[in-house]
Design a protein around this nucleic acid. Structure first.
Length: 490
RNA sequence: CGGGGUGUAGCGUAGCCCGGUAUCGCGCCUGCUUUGGGAGCAGGAGGUCGUCAGUUCGAAUCUGGCCACCCCGACCA
């Protein structure tokens, strides 16, 4: 993609599906809407997990694990929460199979009906708050700062690899605090962690902001989000952090004694990012030659391809390349030396480009004679000859430069697709091009809803750093005190 | 759940209108030559044409049912 940004979904779907397949990241599974993440794709997810997990721990959180199944009754306890998820839940009703008497195969044993159905978690607020009730008695038990890495299931009508699947992997943080202020600070802190991760590791620029009431998480008082802009001109919610107020504490009766000795409900937050980030990564940097992985998330940062003739030639390259690999690894760079004699160099070049490896080093007779290596960078598809002497420093710098360059390019692309409009006509025209649209809105849910019905665009967020500016709503013409960020979203 | 489309070898396809057991490319296997951008030549293996039924001497092809998948919408991170 890269050069031609098109909001035409049909072409883009094909391009995206082909890319995911060719880069060997994932495929549709036998189960409708579910995805198999292949080793190549999972390796990137693992790198993401590692980086995020460290950031969570650096901000005082610990990991735990809660059950996959949630009793149905738990969902009745928070009214708006059930409203938000009821339509997309997988429900377990029985616990046993048996062979059909007519020999037609295995059937669900009607005698094995559960007394209370179990819901496969679409998110874990309910089971976690039920559990927290037993853990929290005093302000001394607070704050409770827990994260869980898990899978969740949302029975979506329509799915798309990584961006929307029926089952997905994610992390969900669930925290409990003594005061509203502390909980709000936590909500903001974790949103900043997400923004930091997405921008600095994934090299994807995001807008931080707050959701409107329409787009708010079911059961939250406020939902903060980071919004990314993909190459097809559609926005993607890349992460959310919710201030839940005392809603779940009240629903699950979680009270604590404060310093003054009085009983109060605790204040809650929850926050999460998912394998959807993989979709954001793919759709942000990839080009017509395939995937581009930012160096900080690449399982293999550098691949070395020997160029040789015959077995003897290969043996010679093995000897010459070993110390180069060693020097790079001593710098903490992950290196793969691909000396398979079953594939030719040109094949390997194309293959690693498709898979997005940031840097490729080619080494042959010519380099052996000159004391050099040929270095190709994935982001710009350019080649350069470096001396072997000091190669580790050059590569280290190059990886940093690539990481930086990817972010800059993505940022420039986003800025280019940013429109500021003042009328509904301009708004619709801008939508055809795709991208974020910054426009005045009267602040009502009705107007937001009408705009969505008419154009499919939604308010992605009200940016945190928004400047106040008097104007008139593009839809209703009523007075507005600030512009908000619209886009068509995934 | 509505609208559209597609099912032929591991993958991508031609053939279907106008019935006669299947085309081409990639990939795979063997051999030789090759190796600085997806190698060349020669030989070879691999298909109950999604499925069930009907029409027919004969069905990938015509008719009907069913199934699966993809795309577009409603739903959504």
């Amino acid at each position: 993609m890269n050069k031609e940004v098109t909001p035409r979904a049909e072409d883009f779907s094909k391009w995206y599906n082909d890319l995911v397949a060719k880069a060997d990241l994932a495929e549709h599974s036998a189960v409708r809407g579910c995805m198999v993440i292949k080793p190549n794709g999972y390796a990137i997810w693992e790198k993401m997990q590692q980086a995020l997990d460290k950031m969570f721990k650096d901000t005082g959180h610990v990991n735990a694990y809660f059950p996959l199944f949630i009793p149905k009754s738990f969902f009745s306890k928070e009214a708006s929460h059930v409203d938000g998820f009821a339509k997309e839940c997988a429900v377990v009703t029985h616990y046993r199979l048996k062979n059909a008497e007519d020999g037609s195969g295995v059937i669900v044993d009607p005698d094995a009906k559960l007394e209370e159905e179990l819901i496969v978690r679409p998110t874990s607020e309910t089971i976690i708050w039920h559990t927290y009730k037993g853990w929290i008695q005093s302000y001394r038990d607070l704050p409770l700062l827990i994260n869980q890495w898990a899978n969740v299931v949302r029975w979506e009508m329509r799915t798309r690899l990584f961006l929307r699947t029926a089952e997905f992997l994610w992390q969900e943080g669930h925290t409990a605090h003594a005061t509203a202020q502390e909980a709000i600070e936590e909500t903001e802190r974790m949103l900043n962690v997400y923004a930091d991760f997405v921008e600095n590791f994934m090299a994807v620029p995001v807008v931080k902001g707050v959701k409107t009431a329409n787009e708010r998480f079911a059961g939250a008082l406020d939902t903060y989000c980071i919004e990314a802009m993909l190459q097809d001109g559609k926005a993607l919610q890349a992460g959310t952090s919710h201030f839940l107020g005392q809603n779940f504490a009240k629903a699950f009766d979680v009270k604590f004694t404060n310093k003054e000795g009085t009983l109060d409900y605790v204040w809650a937050t929850s926050w999460g990012v998912s394998t959807r980030l993989m979709g954001a990564l793919i759709m942000s940097h990839s080009d017509d030659k395939g995937l581009v992985i930012p160096p900080k998330l690449a399982h293999t940062q550098v691949v070395i391809v020997p160029i040789y003739k015959g077995d003897e030639g290969l043996a010679k390259m093995n000897v010459a390349i070993a110390p180069i690999k060693q020097k790079l690894e001593a710098k903490g760079i992950s290196v793969k030396y691909d000396n398979r004699d079953t594939q030719r160099p040109g094949w390997k070049f194309a293959e690693y480009e498709m898979k997005g490896i940031p840097v490729r080093i080619a080494f042959g007779e010519r380099d052996l004679a000159n004391g050099t290596v040929e270095v190709a960078r994935r982001d710009e598809l350019t080649k350069e000859v470096f001396p072997i002497e000091g190669i580790e420093n050059n590569i280290e710098n190059l990886l940093k430069e690539i990481q930086d360059n990817l972010y800059k390019k993505a940022l420039a692309r986003r800025e280019e697709s940013m429109h500021q409009v003042d009328t509904m006509e301009e708004f619709k025209k801008a939508l055809e091009k795709g991208g974020f649209i910054y426009a005045h809105w009267d602040g009502t849910s009705e107007t937001e809803q009408k705009i969505k019905e008419e154009t499919k665009a939604t308010i992605r967020c009200i940016p945190f750093d928004n400047k106040k500016e008097n104007g008139t709503c593009i839809y209703s013409g009523k007075p507005s005190e600030q512009r908000v960020l619209f886009a068509i979203a995934y």
